[in-house]
Design a protein around this nucleic acid. Structure first.
Lengths: 254, 254
DNA sequence: GTAACATACTTGTCTATACAAGTATAGCGG
DNA sequence: CCGCTATACTTGTATAGACAAGTATGTTAC
């Protein structure tokens, strides 16, 4: 147990990041790297207090939020345990598809089909919260898992907020990770639809006409402005979205 | 302001429910009933402390969790505000479809197509975490919004946990609200897929063959046992799923 | 042997206090 | 009129301490 706790020395009380967040990150890392395996018992709150020299409320907040996010399970009177790993791509987490693919042991690659400027039509203008006719940056790319297309990405970006977007090489870095490095999103909106792809989409994703697709649209805000609106299309045969949660009272409330 | 705060008198320090939860519920109710309207400023933490006679940390926890759930927005140094109402059915909230429909001003009705006992095949047994061949309760129902089918529900229920399931009249009460009244779910799993409905499903939902559907599968646990596994099929033309969140650091983490 | 009890340890909640940091505003000096 | 500063108020984080309540285990009484 000592060895486990000792490696917590990453906690830095003078860091700009809050303590509870540093603790969450550390535990998250330990679980994702399988240093702490599924079902394993975590150190108790009091043990963590002693090891990290922070107050119990700070530890408690970190563990409570990790529970709410489904990463650990806690049993009153017993202890805290690493939760079972979810088997599906997360629905609400803002994950980079490249990281998601490589994490599952597959090879990720992507091909940029378009990277240019487009004028906003009525619908795009409304969703990006700009005037009609505003020029926006546009990216169209296909993502592959072991050379099989799994996602078609169509992304609009506000050029005022990300002026250097067109200069990036999105066959190397994904747009998600680039934007995450530039922005700290403060709000997100997700909409999921089932669609029947048109023939061009079928070609790009190399699927038969008649196969339905899952379409996930995400808008991201920073400082009350829409930074980007991305529509991701997944062949339903190759991908599904899911999430497993601990339930809190809000989710049950009528 | 006094009138607003005065009506908080529902807080009961000797109630079994935690104080922060009572506060969350009260605020939730005020927002959902439009007593507090979108964009309106909430009383400050200190005002709530004075009005409710609880400590600021308790108020703060309630407001923080409401923020995380997207019901309110908070601005450092400014105050707390009622968030804009989301325009879509929530993805993760366990909502009753009847409540959702009636809340939008439409008429909900439902028709039970089957309510019986089925033996678990391999797939169902695995998802319900029971032995193959175990008998399970099964419900098949269609939900209508103003007489237009919007959801096909196929639900398996563990009969050991809900022995009186078959005795219910699910044309009056929805299965969701009945199960919620019997159980406090502790964990949920959601999986979203795009599917092409078979002809029987098309008939039940009164859609043209060739229209894709969104399929949301949900498993609910209580005491580490699967209580129910429901598959809900929505015609994509009549429904989409969405959610808008405040982003916390977890969702951004790579 | 078994049931009841005491104990120790766990998580859950709540309080009172403190300080940090972001924002708006009033007032002052130029 | 403009810009600076003091201030008051807001939310965000962290602490130390307390009690409640759930669980497991060992001990005692019968």
């Amino acid at each position: 147990m000592n060895a486990i706790i000792d490696s917590f020395d990453a906690i830095d009380k003078s860091a700009p990041q809050p303590l509870y967040q540093q603790i969450k990150n550390t535990i998250h890392r330990k679980i994702k790297s399988s240093e702490w395996k599924s079902g394993q018992k975590l150190p108790s709150e009091n043990e963590l207090v002693a090891a990290l020299q922070v107050s119990r409320m700070t530890i408690h907040r970190a563990l409570r939020e990790l529970t709410q996010e489904g990463l650990i399970k806690r049993v009153h009177g017993i202890g805290s345990f690493v939760a079972d790993a979810p088997r599906h791509a997360s629905l609400i987490e803002l994950r980079d598809i490249a990281a998601e693919v490589t994490e599952s042991g597959k090879q990720h690659s992507s091909r940029v089909l378009a990277l240019n400027t487009k004028l906003a039509d009525e619908a795009i203008a409304r969703s990006m919260q700009v005037a009609r006719g505003t020029s926006l940056y546009f990216l169209n790319a296909v993502h592959y898992q072991d050379d099989i297309p799994i996602q078609l990405e169509a992304r609009y970006v506000n050029p005022e907020l990300v002026p250097n977007f067109l200069q990036q090489d999105f066959s190397v870095t994904t747009s998600t990770s680039f934007l995450l490095s530039q922005f700290r999103p403060q709000e997100m909106e997700h909409i999921v639809r089932a669609i029947m792809p048109d023939t061009r989409t079928c070609t790009k994703l190399r699927i038969e006409p008649g196969e339905p697709c899952l379409q996930l649209s995400r808008r991201t805000w920073s400082n009350n402005q829409v930074v980007t609106h991305v529509t991701m299309t997944y062949p339903s045969s190759r991908y599904d979205l899911g999430a497993r949660y601990a339930v809190n009272d809000f989710q049950m409330r009528q």
